[in-house]
Simulated assay, not measured.
Amino acid sequence: MKFFHRLFKKPEKLQKIQPDYNALVANYLQSLPRCSAQVQVLGARESQPFCNCEVTLAAQDLLRWAKHHAASGWHSDVDVQVATQALPIWLQNADVQSTEEITQLPALMQPLVVPYLDEFIFHYNLFRNGPVSVACLECNKGAQEAVREKVEAGWANGLLSSATQWACPQGHIIFRAEHEFHIQRRKRS
């Protein structure tokens, strides 16, 4: 048994040291501005493939989702994991008195929220029930009655792809999210 242990044991220098996530999260939170009651999740500054709107949510509405998201998974990338753990803490410490101020979602937290934004807003029905603000940058008007539609669903070679887009009441496409699912099937013997 010692033979196999010595054979497969990594040298001390090569063993990966587990980072102290609590310290990393604390350092990251200190570098962030204080969260206000309203958080701009998506805006023109983003590098999204198709985003022609600004989306602002109440920090408390985003907090419910952030707690669930932080508890439900683990990322192998240390920076992403730190941002995932920091997001609910940052939102929970929001200054709820600052109703006029809007804080932009920090850059490391952006990729955590934006892929789920479409489902998040429509799952909680925030267009009708919550203080979500969607502003079309084309006509400079609020798009509280944005229309959501599924478009371009297709299936080819085990790849299911679809897209969801939002349109403002004037018909401008303000947000588009593309989804892909790769399905592998076993060959039947």
Rank of each mutant, 00 (worst) to 15 (best):
R176Q: 15
L160D: 02
C51N: 11
F122A: 15
Q92A: 06
N22T: 03
C35L: 10
V114Y: 04
L87F: 04
D20N: 05
V134Y: 01
D61E: 06
R34V: 07
W65M: 01
M109R: 11
A146K: 14
F3L: 12
G73N: 01
Q81C: 06
E149Q: 12
P106I: 04
Q165M: 12
Q184S: 08
L117T: 09
C53K: 05
D77C: 05
I102G: 01
G130M: 05
L42E: 04
C136W: 03
P131T: 09
Q170E: 15
Q18H: 05
K150H: 14
A70P: 13
P11Q: 11
F175H: 14
W90V: 06
P106A: 10
Q165K: 12
A156Q: 10
D61M: 05
F181W: 12
C139L: 03
N52A: 07
V96G: 00
P19W: 10
K187A: 14
L159P: 00
A163P: 00
K10G: 01
A163K: 15
R34T: 12
R45E: 07
N27Y: 07
A37G: 00
E145Y: 13
V39T: 10
S76T: 09
H5L: 06
Q60H: 11
V114R: 03
I173F: 08
K150N: 11
